[in-house]
Amino acid sequence: MTEHAYNFAYLDEATKQMIRRAILKGLAIPGYQVPFASREMPMPYGWGTGGVQVTAACLTPSDTLKVIDQGADDATNAVSIRKFFERTARVATTTATAEASVIQTRHRIPEERLSEGQILVYQVPIPEPLRFLEPRESETRRMHALEEYGLMHVKLYEDIARHGEIATSYAYPVKVEERYVMDPSPIPKFDNPKLSGMAAIQLFGAGREQRIYALPPYTEVVSLDFEDHPFEPMKADHDCDLCGAGESYLDELITDDAGGRMFVCSDTDFCAARRAGGHRGRLVPEGDAA
């Protein structure tokens, strides 16, 4: 039934054309937010309607799609979007990062290094990095046009004045190719260094806010900072309790009412692959592989 009820990848062709033109202009002006006529999608705003529309415009029948939510393949948002494209585009899906040609993500960049031929699509809630500093769209647009980003540095400075360090830990603003200040979506700042020089194409879709922006491969992306307070990526000071990885981004889980806790990789595919490879963390008993 579904196979015949919808056009390939759900959206009609005229809509895809409009989104495709916006993506191309986004690639030509890295970091600039291209307005587009975002459509109603069969899911609420905040569930990745922007990312879904970008993915729908990029998918071909021979793609293999991976969807992650905070690094996890098995979270509700990831599962429902993956099922959506299985039904409407009939594409293959995977949880293995290396096997995917298109990866839609909410709030993480996979631990595994991405390669040429892959596309990373971000779900973006608020695309405008200056929005919480200046609510008027007309003003923020002018600030981007004039490259007037002093306000953002004032905000980071106030962080330092108040907390002794830049307290922003996610959606950490970046400057793209020394021109546009861009919101990398709410990825942890641990992931910021991966934005720069990535071999894959990075596309950002904000459905409710009707913006698309992009980073071509090997684009220079610099996290904003000060000479005396340089940018520092941050993670929990632990190893993964399941796979023992010391270099991955961790989620903290509360395990009982007595303050017990464990730290696990936020990237479930990365963690599972390590455990399959025989790595073992603090809470996995001897001999109990994966």
């Binding site: 990848a9 062709e13 495709r20 993506i23 191309l24 690639l27 030509a28 071909t60 194409i201």
Partner: peptide, 14 residues
Amino acid sequence: AAFAFRACLEAMAR
């Protein structure tokens, strides 16, 4: 159109 756009996307990105 999907295949053509992907080629076009790769072209504009690289």
